[in-house]
Lab assay of single mutants.
Amino acid sequence: DWEDIVRFLRKLFELGEEVVIGDWHNHHREEIKRLIEWLEKHF
């Protein structure tokens, strides 16, 4: 279910905002944000 995936990604992203998950999070933050925005537009 796409909504569950979007919710999971958003939760992960919000957690990442508070607890910076090292370089991985910083590197992928923009991609995650773009992916969430893309999914919201399409689903």
Rank of each mutant, 00 (worst) to 15 (best):
R7Y: 03
F43Y: 07
F13V: 04
W38T: 03
K33E: 09
D4M: 08
H42D: 03
E17V: 15
L9A: 01
L9F: 04
R34C: 03
I21R: 10
K41T: 13
D1L: 14
H27T: 10
L39K: 00
W2D: 01
E30A: 12
L39H: 01
E3W: 14
I36L: 05
G16E: 07
E3Q: 12
E37Y: 07
L9M: 02
E37G: 11
E30I: 10
L15K: 02
F13P: 00
D1Y: 14
E40R: 10
R7S: 07
D23R: 04
F8G: 04
F8H: 07
I21Y: 02
L35M: 04
D1V: 14
H28Q: 06
R10E: 15
L15R: 03
I32Q: 02
E14P: 02
E17T: 14
I5S: 01
E3V: 11
E17D: 06
E17G: 13
L35Q: 01
H27F: 14
V6W: 15
E37V: 08
E31T: 14
R29F: 13
E14G: 10
D23N: 07
E18K: 13
E31N: 08
I32G: 01
E31F: 15
H27V: 08
H27K: 12
E14R: 05
H28G: 10
H27P: 04
E3M: 11
V6M: 12
I5L: 11
G16K: 04
W24E: 06
E14T: 06
H25W: 15
E18Y: 10
L35W: 06
E3T: 11
D4L: 15
L12E: 00
R29H: 11
W38K: 07
L9Y: 01
E18H: 14
E40W: 15
V6F: 15
I5R: 01
W38I: 06
H27E: 05
W38M: 04
I32R: 01
W38Q: 04
D4G: 06
I21M: 10
G22S: 03
R10W: 15
W24R: 09
E30P: 05
N26D: 15
V6D: 02
W24F: 09
W38G: 03
E17R: 14
I21L: 12
G22W: 04
E31W: 15
W2A: 01
F8R: 06
H42W: 15
E18I: 11
H42F: 15
L15T: 04
F13W: 13
E18Q: 14
E40A: 13
F13D: 00
H28L: 15
H42G: 05
E18N: 14
K41E: 05
D23T: 02
R10L: 13
F8K: 08
E3A: 08
W24L: 12
V6Y: 14
E17H: 12
V19R: 04
K41G: 07
E37M: 10
K41F: 06
R10H: 10
D1K: 11
I5W: 14
G16T: 12
D23P: 02
H25T: 07
